[in-house]
Design a protein around this nucleic acid. Structure first.
Length: 610
DNA sequence: ATTGTCTGCCC
DNA sequence: ATTCTGC
DNA sequence: GCAGAATGGGCAGACAAT
C-alpha cells in the first residue's frame, strides 16, 4: 500500500464524526493491506511503530520537527509560530507550507529533468521511521533530522500532515485501539457474520470483536493480533491466555466521588483497598527470572533490582504474574514517602545503588493474574486475592495491600480515613462476586478509585492570579489552551507561579477567555511577576481563578515559596470557576501555599509533623 | 566538566 | 493524571 | 457511558552547547 493511500484514508477517517463510519473506513483499509504490512499499519494508525513494550520511538518531537519544517520550506520561526497559533496543529502547518512550496517545485519540473518523487510505500515509511528511532550516540540528533528530512522531502502535502503529526505524537484521527478493533472485526469477520444496519453501515460482530479484544488485552500487541486475524481468521485467536513475559493490559478504574455513588455501582459488600501513591507494577516471575512492566507496558525491570530480589524471595519458586503498587518508604521508619521519591527511581541507570539505599521500595501486591500455568483472569476477585495471599506470605518489603470488606458508607469512610492517615491517596473499591474477573484493559465500574480530591470540600483549592497563557492545539486551536496561575507573595508584593492549568474549562469558558484576558495582554512578564516559564502571552495580574488539585509538590520550575529545595507547585490542577469578586491581592498567598505543602502527611519539615 | 534543551513516560 | 464533548 | 482528545507536574537520560 502506498503511504499516500493510507494518508488519504486517514484524512477520511478524521473527517467523519461517526464511529461506525470510522470503523468501516478502517476496515476497508485493512482489507486492502497485505499480510506483511498489516502490523505496521495497525501500529501506525495508533501513532506507534511497534507494541508498547518494545519501547521503539522515533526520538524526534515537536521542537525538532519545527526545525525540519523550517529547513524544508524556508519558513522563519515566526512564520511557523504564527501559523501554529492559528492552526493549532503542526501537521496542518506543514501541509500548508508544503502546498505553498509545491508550486515552486512544479515550476522547476517544468524545466524538464526533475523526476517526480517516487511513491512512498507504507512499509518503507515504517521501516525508515524505525531506523531513525534506532540512531543514537554523538551526532545522533543531526543524523535523525537528516533522515527525517529525506522522508519529508518525498512527502506530498497530505502525507506531510500525517508524518508530522506522527512525529509529534498526535495523529488526531479520533481513532484509538477500540475503534481499530471495531474496524478489524468488520474486516476479518466472514461476510455473513457482519450485520449491516438500516443506515447501510456495518456493525462490528460482537463475539468476534470480543475475541480480538481479549487477545489484544492479554498480549498487548495489536499488530500481532490483527496480523493473526487476517492470516488465520479471528477464530484462531480464541482461547488466548496470559503468557508470562508478555504484559497484560492492566485493568483500570473509574472515579467515584462519594460512598453512595460507589455502592450504587459495585454493590455491597465490596472490597476496599488502600490506593498507594506509587508506580503500578506488573511482575512476571518465572524460573527464567523476573520481568517488571509499567502501567503502560514498558519494561521497567532494570531500575528495580531490589524489587526483583524481594519478589523472588517472596514467591519462593512459584511462577506467577502479580500486580502491585511500588511505593517509596523511609528506610528508618518504613513510613510511606511522597511520590516524588519513587519518581527518582523510574528509569534510573546511574547511581542506582545509592538510590536503592536512600529510598527503599515496598511492593503492595493487589492482584494475581496467573500462577504456575493457570490463567486466573476469569476467576472472581476473592479467589485471585486468596491465591495471591497464599503464594506471597509475609515479607519485609513485599506485602499484600491493606484491604477490608466494606458494607456501607460508615465502614468505607472509616477505612478511607485510615488510608489517608497512612499516607495513601485514598481507596480502590472493587466489586466482589461472580463477575469480578480481571477485566484486562477495560475501564468500567468494577473498580472505583476514591480520592479525597474528588470531593470539592476535600480537594486542595487555590485562588490563583492568571499571569500568562499558551495557545491551544487541536480542537482548542484559536483559543487559549493553558493558563499560568500565580500566588501572591505578601511580604514582597510579587506574584509567583504555582501551576499551569489546562483542564476543567468548558468550551464556553474557553470562548470567553479572549474577552476576559485580552485587555490585560502584554508582551513581557508583568513587573511584579517572578516566572521561569515562557508563555505565549503575558497578562497584567488581575483576574483570579479557583483551581483545584490533589497535592502540592516540590517544583523545579514554579517560583512560589522557592527555597534551596525549589518552589512549590500544584499536582493535577484543574480550573473550577472564576473568582470575579477577587482582586490579585485577594489570591492565595505564598505563605498559605507553603503551609499547605508542609501540612501534607507524607511531608516532613516546618509546621505540623506527621 | 557543567549546564541547558528536549524527549518519553510516570503519575 | 483530570476533564470535557460527541456519539 | 464509551472513546477520544484536550490539558497538568516532574523525573532521568541522551545529547548539544558552553
Amino acid at each position: 500500500m502506498d503511504f499516500r493511500a493510507l494518508a488519504e484514508r486517514m484524512e477520511a477517517v478524521e473527517a467523519t464524526p461517526s464511529r461506525l463510519e470510522m470503523a468501516e473506513l478502517l476496515a476497508q483499509t485493512l482489507v486492502r493491506a497485505s499480510a506483511e504490512e498489516t502490523p505496521p499499519i495497525a501500529y501506525m494508525l495508533l501513532g506507534g511503530l511497534a507494541p508498547e513494550f518494545e519501547g521503539l520511538e522515533v526520538g524526534l518531537a515537536e521542537n525538532r520537527v519545527r526545525e525540519l519544517i523550517r529547513t524544508r520550506t524556508g519558513a522563519s520561526q515566526t512564520q511557523v509560530d504564527e501559523r501554529m497559533a492559528e492552526d493549532g496543529d503542526l501537521g496542518l502547518v506543514a501541509e500548508h507550507l508544503w502546498a505553498e512550496s509545491e508550486g515552486g517545485q512544479r515550476a522547476l519540473d517544468a524545466f524538464g529533468d526533475t523526476e517526480p518523487d517516487p511513491e512512498l510505500a507504507v512499509r518503507d515509511v515504517h521501516g525508515r521511521l524505525a531506523e531513525i528511532g534506532r540512531i543514537e550516540g554523538q551526532g545522533s540528533q543531526e543524523k535523525k533530522k537528516r533522515h527525517a528530512l529525506r522522508l519529508l522531502d518525498q512527502a506530498t502535502p497530505v502525507e506531510a500532515r500525517y508524518l508530522v503529526r506522527f512525529l509529534v505524537g498526535q495523529l488526531r484521527l479520533g481513532v484509538a485501539d477500540q475503534t481499530l478493533l471495531d474496524g478489524a472485526a468488520i474486516a476479518y469477520a466472514p461476510d455473513e457474520a457482519v450485520d449491516v444496519g438500516d443506515d447501510g453501515m456495518a456493525r462490528p460482530p460482537t463475539e468476534l470483536r470480543e475475541t480480538m479484544e481479549r487477545a489484544y488485552n492479554l498480549t498487548s500487541d495489536i499488530g500481532d493480533v490483527l496480523g493473526t486475524a487476517r492470516e488465520h481468521g479471528i477464530e484462531s485467536l480464541t482461547g488466548v491466555e496470559v503468557t508470562p513475559g508478555m504484559p497484560v493490559r492492566p485493568m483500570l478504574a473509574e472515579r467515584g466521588k462519594d460512598a453512595d455513588e460507589i455502592f450504587a455501582n459495585v454493590g455491597s459488600p465490596a472490597l476496599a483497598e488502600y490506593k498507594y501513591d506509587g508506580l503500578r507494577i506488573q511482575a512476571h516471575v518465572t524460573s527464567d527470572g523476573v520481568e517488571l512492566f509499567s502501567r503502560r507496558l514498558e519494561d521497567v525491570t532494570d531500575p528495580y533490582p531490589d524489587v526483583v530480589d524481594q519478589l523472588e524471595q517472596a514467591l519462593d519458586g512459584t511462577a506467577a504474574v502479580v500486580e502491585g503498587e511500588a511505593v517509596p518508604v523511609d528506610p528508618e521508619t518504613g513510613e510511606i514517602q511522597p511520590f516524588q521519591e519513587i519518581a527518582k527511581r523510574r528509569g534510573r541507570k546511574h547511581d542506582l545503588e545509592a538510590a536503592i539505599q536512600e529510598v527503599p521500595i515496598h511492593l503492595y501486591a493487589f492482584d494475581c493474574l496467573w500462577v504456575d500455568g493457570e490463567d486466573l483472569t476469569r476467576e472472581p476477585l476473592t479467589e485471585r486475592r486468596q491465591r495471591l495471599e497464599a503464594i506471597l506470605g509475609e515479607h519485609e518489603l513485599v506485602d499484600v495491600s491493606s484491604a477490608e470488606h466494606v458494607r456501607d458508607a460508615t465502614e468505607l469512610d472509616r477505612f478511607f480515613e485510615d488510608a489517608m492517615a497512612d499516607g495513601c491517596e485514598g481507596l480502590m473499591v472493587k466489586k466482589l462476586g461472580d463477575d469480578s474477573h480481571y477485566q484486562a484493559g477495560a475501564r468500567g465500574y468494577r473498580w472505583i478509585k476514591y480520592k479525597a480530591d474528588y470531593h470539592a470540600d476535600l480537594a486542595d483549592s487555590l485562588d490563583l492570579v492568571v499571569v500568562g497563557a499558551w495557545h491551544g492545539k487541536g480542537r482548542r486551536a484559536g483559543w487559549y489552551g493553558t493558563l499560568l496561575g500565580a500566588a501572591w507573595d505578601e511580604t514582597e508584593d510579587r506574584f509567583k507561579t504555582v501551576c499551569k492549568v489546562g483542564t476543567g474549562f468548558t468550551d464556553e469558558d474557553l470562548e470567553q477567555l479572549d474577552e476576559l484576558l485580552d485587555p490585560l495582554t502584554r508582551g513581557e512578564p508583568a513587573r511584579q511577576l517572578d516566572v521561569d516559564l515562557e508563555p505565549d502571552v503575558y497578562f497584567e495580574p488581575e483576574v483570579v481563578a479557583e483551581i483545584h488539585g490533589a497535592d502540592l509538590t516540590r517544583s523545579p520550575v514554579h517560583t512560589a515559596a522557592r527555597d534551596d529545595e525549589g518552589g512549590i507547585a500544584l499536582r493535577f490542577p484543574r480550573f473550577v470557576r472564576w473568582r470575579s469578586a477577587k482582586g490579585p491581592r485577594d489570591a492565595t498567598t505564598v505563605d498559605e501555599v507553603r503551609s499547605m505543602y508542609y501540612d501534607q502527611p507524607t511531608v516532613d519539615g516546618p509546621g505540623a509533623e506527621g
